[in-house]
């Protein structure tokens, strides 16, 4: 049981340890400005990781999220130009959802391994973004810029930025879906043993399509956050963020083998990754070493998962 407890709660201990260490070693960490900043920075990866958590619990990977993010961002800017800011926001999220649904249909119906199928689709989507923009950076009209950037600004809630609140809302919705609905139980069952789920009368294809659709919606929202922050969009936006999102999920302790995990875990993972960056900045360390630390952390998380799973089960089989 001790192994299980470590697996279940190790991430909380690690997060608390990191917070304490940073509080003690710097004067600046525990300031309101810095904390708001950390939460703001965690938003994009956090959003992607929420959708990714559903995919991974369902036994699949979605490597197309950063490309979906880019297309959604570009579409939202272009629609904003022609139809205004609210329409642009809606178009961004709708684009992500549609593209996610398409990804899900391809994966569920082609039965190509999700890793390969979404890798191929991510190249297609990234190419699509280049086609749409013609390789240029796209901007909203200058008069729209202030309104367009509303989504990246601090709010009346103690200065916490809008992206943080968006992440909180999306995470709450994903948590509710995964933990409290029939659909969520289906996601766990399909990820844990797809054949058993099918024979239990669970429709596996709609569940698979749905998790990708949700992942796409999350990516579209993340794209919106990034593009409103920058005030522009381009085809290369968010490149490789899908790997950071997977890292956040895995560091949080969701099993890469599917069937186990939770949404709060990916938030913890995203926070840890953000805190490491933040720590490097505050301590004035050479940020080139940051990647080394992040890589080792991912390796440690996956190894721990493997090791804890490898502990002998009680007898009787």
């Amino acid at each position: 049981m001790r192994a299980a407890a470590l697996r279940d709660n190790g991430i909380v201990v690690a997060l608390a340890g990191l917070v304490i260490a940073l509080s003690l070693s710097t004067d600046t960490f525990l300031t309101k400005g810095n904390l708001v900043n950390v939460l703001d920075q965690a938003a994009v990866v956090g959003l992607l990781a929420c959708g990714m958590t559903l995919c991974i619990v369902c036994g699949m990977f979605d490597l197309s999220v950063s490309a979906v993010l880019a297309v959604s961002a570009v579409v939202s800017v272009l629609v904003t130009k022609s139809a205004g800011v609210p329409a642009g926001y809606a178009a961004g999220i709708a684009t992500g959802t549609l593209m996610g649904t398409a990804t899900g249909l391809v994966v569920a119906l082609s039965r190509v391994h999700s890793f390969i199928a979404t890798l191929a689709l991510s190249i297609v989507y990234r190419g699509l973004a280049v086609v749409i923009t013609g390789g240029a950076i796209v901007y909203p009209h200058a008069r729209q810029l202030d309104a367009f950037q509303t989504l990246s600004l601090p709010t009346v809630l103690g200065g916490i930025t809008a992206p943080t609140l968006v992440l909180a809302a999306v995470a709450a919705a994903c948590w509710l879906l995964l933990a409290a609905t029939v659909f969520g139980r289906g996601v766990y069952a399909v990820g844990g043993n797809a054949e058993a789920a099918r024979l239990s009368g669970i429709r596996t294809v709609p569940i698979r399509v749905a998790v990708f659709a949700i992942s796409g919606a999350c990516a579209g929202t993340a794209g919106l956050v990034m593009t409103t922050r920058a005030g522009s969009a381009q085809a290369g936006l968010g490149t490789l963020l899908e790997l950071t999102a997977i890292a956040a999920v895995v560091i949080g302790g969701t099993s890469i083998f599917g069937g186990e995990g939770a949404v709060w875990r990916c938030l913890a993972g995203a926070l840890i990754l953000t805190l490491i960056s933040n720590g490097f900045n505050l301590l004035g360390w050479d940020s080139t070493y940051k990647q080394v630390i992040e890589g080792l952390l991912i390796l440690a998380a996956v190894t721990l998962d493997r090791l804890l799973r490898g502990t002998p089960a009680p007898p009787g089989r």
Partner: peptide, 20 residues
């Protein structure tokens, strides 16, 4: 291979087919 979902609890496994 076709019956249990090993990572889930007894509770979740029993409820699986009757969830609707």
């Amino acid at each position: 291979a076709e019956g249990i979902v090993p990572a889930l609890s007894i509770r979740e496994n029993i409820a699986l087919a009757a969830l609707p």
